[in-house]
Design a protein around this nucleic acid. Structure first.
Lengths: 331, 331
DNA sequence: AGTGTTATTGCAACCGATCTCAGCAACCGA
DNA sequence: TCGGTTGCTGAGATCGGTTGCAATAACACT
């Protein structure tokens, strides 16, 4: 197909290119007959506007970066999925940027996106977000973070209520008769991760029971180490809360390798609500985060900030998802 | 920061903008002193070229689309991960496009990418690729497919040797004493999926044993249905080959819910080699695909085709990954 | 010194849109 | 009939680069 530019459409329709431009991007500014004629001609030629040229001139594009540390982590994958959809619905193209936890890369992505005139970006961090780093970029003013950002209210955030989530898990376990409940931290070194841990510590204290932190690391092996620690204990807890589903998987797997069965020997509950959990062995009981909502809301917040400059901090409610990895305490 | 264009750098360096342009994109065409001076000035100003403007003029950009049906599927996630890295190494930006299996979307992405002057694209399909559909786009001539494409040698492909993989699985199971081995198909309705199934059928036939296809669907529930079917059998096989890891997970999970244990009661082997498998319960024995290689090779093939027009079809070797979901047959 | 190369750099058109401004016609009320 | 609106369209500069071509300088050779 010969290069289709706005000029060939203009010629074909017998109007000036500025009219064609308006017919597409500001329809109300063109007499409706003219507009329809132009659109029809364009359609016939199979013409669509060049997003590149548009972005160059308008200084704003429709591509928006989603910066995640690791797409292989199903949590981020699910986030990416719902975000591509949410973006799509609003006419954006999602550009997935994987940092592998390297902050330098994330800087690089920021500048690249800035150069692409991305209207804003979404960051799902793996470490506590440094608000200074965010500000170093002009782009920093147009970022939504999927985590709490300490000491900086100027960047919109969306999170779920960690304390509430942990409470849900604890209540569920209590209702099954468990009183000695361990905790395994894990993966992301985010505020969110921290909050969950703190909530666990506080809530067990309030309850008068003593907290048992099996592992407080934030890497992929936390689950395995937590399980090892558990196995070495003289008087291990009867249930374990994992900071997230991936860790829960690792815990159950490691326990299994040592002959312990879940939930018969120990109950395990995760946090995330990954679809994958339903197909785990056993299906994982977990605290579900409304990931789909998070994706949509993140984009809404960004648009809102772009619009009226308002900065919101949305906190979503988690919910309990009872599947098969927890059961009544049996002596 | 005030808008940094090539002109301000030119002014600052006391040269014409075309010289600045050349200093960056065709270094050998500029006297080395001039070039270094320009680069230094640019550096000082914190200037980088606008990829948009470049793409517009050059009619080729550095963004390359990776089209996958579902990023939530860890196979595609791992692929995306290695591809972002491979792309990055070569100066490309990966644009992740998730189709959710909707061919219309994939068409949309193609045209969008064409408009973005993407030099080529990578497609990891969920259905048999229709070479006609590929050709409808000018872009179709610059696509690498991660699957076999029937009846069209003109598009480069990278796959793994399905037959070899199934053979590995079968041999492993045989060596453990299993003779009655079932098969559960699953998920992607690709040539690859078909090939694995065919290989299973052929190889068991050659071996004189009778094939037991527990489910031949290609959706997420194939695993569950396969397990149900298995449970209803009078004389069920003692081992199961799953067409891919996700299906294997589902099979084991479903079996587990019915009280059957893997590998004690049945051995199960997957196909993919997902990192996730190592943390499953039990850790999944599987046929590993060299996913990282696939990503790199896909990009190499694309570049090669772009360069000298050659079209290659690379077939990679799978390898057996023995973990915990298979064991000696015990009566 | 005269002429032919070659290495560098400047000029200006161009990529495909957007957008301000100006022009023109139709319409309004006095 | 005339000044004032209003609605629609055309002109042309502009976004930030690239690139073919021309101009100039520097150097080689006879």
């Amino acid at each position: 197909m010969p290069d289709l530019s706005i000029d060939v459409v203009a010629k074909a329709a017998g109007v000036h290119r500025s009219t064609v431009s308006r017919a597409f991007s500001r329809p109300e500014a063109v007499k409706s007959e003219t507009r329809e004629h132009i659109l029809r001609v364009a359609e016939g030629l199979g013409y669509t506007m060049s997003p590149l040229a548009q972005a160059l001139r308008r200084k704003t594009s429709n591509i928006i970066p989603l910066i995640v540390p690791d797409i292989t982590n199903p949590f981020f994958a699910e986030l990416a999925k719902t975000m591509t959809q949410a973006a799509d619905e609003r006419g954006y193209q999602l550009m997935l940027c994987v940092t592998n936890g390297d902050p330098a890369k994330s800087d690089g992505y920021f500048t690249a996106m800035q150069a692409m005139y991305a209207p804003f970006g979404i960051v799902a961090p793996s470490t506590k977000v440094d608000s200074e780093a965010l500000k170093r970029f002009a782009f920093g003013h147009k970022v939504v973070v999927i985590d709490r950002v300490e000491g900086d209210d100027s960047v919109p955030t969306v999170t779920v209520d960690s304390r509430k989530g942990i409470m849900l898990a604890l209540d569920h376990l209590h209702s099954l008769g468990h009183t000695s409940i361990g905790y395994v931290s894990g993966i992301a070194g985010t505020h969110t991760a921290q909050d969950r841990m703190d909530a666990y510590l506080e809530l067990t204290a309030e309850n008068g029971s003593k907290p048992v932190v099996l592992d407080s690391g934030s890497d992929l092996d936390a689950g395995t180490r937590g399980a090892e620690h558990f196995l070495e204990m003289d008087n291990p807890p009867t249930a374990i809360i994992a900071a997230n589903d991936m860790v829960a998987f690792a815990v159950i797997s490691a326990l299994g390798r040592s002959g312990l069965r879940v939930p018969d020997d120990v109950s395990v509950i995760g946090f995330d609500g990954l679809a994958l959990g339903a197909r785990f062995n056993p299906p994982l009981t977990t605290v579900r985060q409304p990931i789909a909502d998070m994706g949509h809301i993140a984009i809404e917040l960004a648009e809102k900030q772009n619009g009226d400059g308002s900065v919101d901090h949305i906190v979503l409610e988690p919910e309990l998802l009872v599947r098969g990895s927890t059961s009544e305490l049996r002596k």
